[in-house]
Amino acid sequence: MTRHDAPVSGGAKVPGADFSVREFARSANGSHRAALRLDAYADSPLDSDTLAEVALLSRLERSALRYLRSVLVTPTHSDARMTAFLVTWAYEKYWLADALELVVAAHPDQPSSPGGESPGARLRLAWHAVGERFEPIRESVVTNLIGDDVIAVHCVTGALDEWLTQAAYQRLAETTGHEQLRDTLAGLLAVKRRHSAFFTTQARDRLTGSPRAQSLARRRLRRTAVPLGSQDEPARLLSRLLGGWITSADLAAIDRRLDGYPGLAGLRLVARTAERATRRAGRAPAVTGEPTR
C-alpha cells in the first residue's frame, strides 16, 4: 500500500496528520437504529423539557450539510484531507440526527417545531434566511482572497461546535433518569469524540506559527454562530441550551480550552454567545408551560 495520510516524502508537516482520516472514513458509524430500543420510551416517556432538548440537538446535528455548503465554497474544498473528513463527518452527523429524531418521534406529544416567537425574533429568523441564500456568494469571494488560512477558522468552529454539543449530551446523560436515553447518548458521544479529535488537532496545527491564521480566526469567530445550526433556532431555546442545559461551568471550561489555542486567548466566545442568547430571549415573550428539569 503506497497511500498514507502523511506525505511520503519530506517537507512541512501536514496539519492534523496525527489523525488518520483514512482510518476514520473506513470505520464510519452509520445508522444507530438497531441500538435505540425505542419501546423503552413507551413505558417510560421523557419529560417535555428533555424532549425539547433532544429535538433541538437533532436539528443542530442536521445542520451539517448547511455548514458544509459554506465551507466548500472556500479554499477548504481544495484540501483533500479536509474534504475526505467532512464527507464522513456529514454522514455520521446524519445518523446522529436520525437517532435523536427517532427518540423524539417515539413520543406521542412531540415538541412543536420552533415558532411562537415575538415579531422581532421572527424578523431576525427571516433575515437569517435571506442571509443564508447569499452567504455562499459572499463567502466564496471573500475567502478565496484570504486563502488557506480560512481552513484554520473552519476547524476551530468545528471544535467549538463539538465542545458545546458534547457538553449538552454529557449533561443530559448525567441528569436524565432514563436509562435507555443515557445509553443512546453514550453511543452518540463516542461518535462525536472522533469529530472533536480531528477538529482540535487540525486547529492547533494550523494556528501554530501562523499569525495570519490566528488573527483571521479571532476576527471571524466573533461573527460565527456556534453551535452550528444555532442561527436557525429561536432565542428562547438557545438561552435554555446555553443557560441551563449546558452549565455555566461548562461554558467557562470551553472558553478556557479555547484560550489554550495559539493566538485565541481572551475571546470569551461562548460566554458572549450565551449572554447574547439570554438577552434576546429576555426580549421574546415568556414561554409558558416549559417546565425545568
Binding site: 497511500r3 495520510d5 474544498h77 481544495s78 483533500a80 475526505a84
Partner: peptide, 18 residues
C-alpha cells in the same frame, strides 16, 4: 492504481484541485 505504482493521495488531489 496503487497496485500499478500510481499514487493518488490527499496531497496529489489537493495539487490537482489547486
Amino acid at each position: 492504481l496503487g497496485r500499478h505504482g500510481i499514487t493518488v493521495d490527499y496531497d496529489a488531489l489537493k495539487a490537482s484541485r489547486l
